[in-house]
């Protein structure tokens, strides 16, 4: 009972516009509330510095998974369970499906939402590395209109984002993956379920004409924000496949240490996070090299 429910007001808007209106009119005073799985934890512990909540859970406008030839677009309130069970996501975005599967367990996955996962800005969240690897974009909407922000520039600092107080996340868009692709996801958590990541790593690569045409590496729990390992990506991207060998893997592992800034906390140590990030990157690259030895182009 540390969470002071009697001090709290909840507004449940009837529509997205209604929600945006109140955010605009009383800027910065309303805390959006989606599935509650992140927010209710500090609330119940009495450590959440908000007393006014904007209840978005009922806004069906923020639901639904839409598919176009170029993109797949996920409503902000898409839950992990929705992600897990979606056949196109399973086929084209297995990392995202994997990251949804390893977030909490079923009861959390039924309520936790993609937008909530990124809006809270936790560096240990499990879907951000996958969203980074897939080059996701986030739609932010306010009464003034909407804008698409590349997810890689969404987080600015620990629990800070580019969102304006009057904005809501409405959709998350992923470019469809086609061609000869490689997907890799690994969460090193404190246990196999109900775990917070100690290191989380997701990669997407595409081979074309004997080269690594695309390579994106998203990481969690290794810096104040989920991040793309750009130095490492640059080493791999554009490389000829036959040139990738143990030496390039060693170089990449070295480069990764430039990309990440892990810390000691109650769950792990900075040195463990560094070592394991590099090792898992090694695993990833070995798997990628193996995978690209034989082209597999999805129709």
């Amino acid at each position: 009972m540390k969470g002071q429910a009697p001090s709290c007001t909840v507004h449940t808007p009837a529509s997205l516009v209604g929600a945006l209106e109140i955010l605009f009119a009383e800027k910065g005073t309303w805390r959006p509330l989606a599935g509650g799985t992140d927010l209710m934890v500090p609330f119940a512990a009495g450590t959440l510095p908000f007393t006014r909540f904007l209840n978005l859970w009922g806004l069906d406008e923020l639901r639904g998974i839409e598919i176009s030839p170029e993109n797949i677009s996920l409503g902000a309130l898409t839950t992990y369970a929705d992600v897990r069970s979606h056949s196109l996501l399973r086929a084209e975005f297995p990392n995202l499906v994997q990251s949804a599967r390893v977030t909490g367990a079923m009861a959390i996955q039924n309520r936790g939402t993609l937008a909530g996962n990124i809006a809270n800005g936790s560096p240990a969240a499990d879907t951000p590395p996958s969203l980074l690897a897939y080059g996701a974009e986030v739609q932010l909407q306010s009464l003034a209109g909407s804008r698409w922000v590349p997810y890689e520039s969404f987080h600015t600092d620990y629990k800070q984002t580019v969102m304006l107080p009057e904005e809501l996340i409405t959709r998350i868009r992923l470019p469809r993956t086609t061609g000869d692709t490689f997907h890799f996801f690994r969460k090193v958590g404190t246990r196999k379920a109900q775990a917070i990541s100690k290191v989380c790593l997701a990669a997407y690569a595409r081979a074309e004409e004997g080269r690594v045409a695309e390579f994106r590496l998203g990481m969690g729990s290794v810096a104040p924000v989920p991040l793309r390992a750009l130095t490492t990506e640059m080493l791999i991207q554009g490389q000829r496949l036959e040139a990738l060998d143990d030496h390039s893997i060693a170089e990449a592992k070295q480069a990764l240490l430039e990309d990440i800034r892990p810390i000691d906390d109650i769950r792990s140590t900075a040195s463990y996070r560094r070592k394991v990030s590099a090792n898992v990157l090694g695993q990833l690259l070995e798997a990628m090299i193996e995978r690209f030895k034989r082209p597999q182009i999805r129709a």
């Binding site: 404190t190 246990r191 379920a193 109900q194 775990a195 109650i266 769950r267």
Partner: peptide, 27 residues
């Protein structure tokens, strides 16, 4: 293997089920 009490000035710092690691059915 996993049940570590993290101490900070004589006080358990990981006094949550999230951070004190007992096994789930998957482990």
């Amino acid at each position: 293997l996993s049940e570590q009490v993290v101490w900070n000035e004589g006080r358990m710092a990981n006094g949550q089920m999230t951070n004190y690691i007992m096994a789930t059915s998957m482990d």
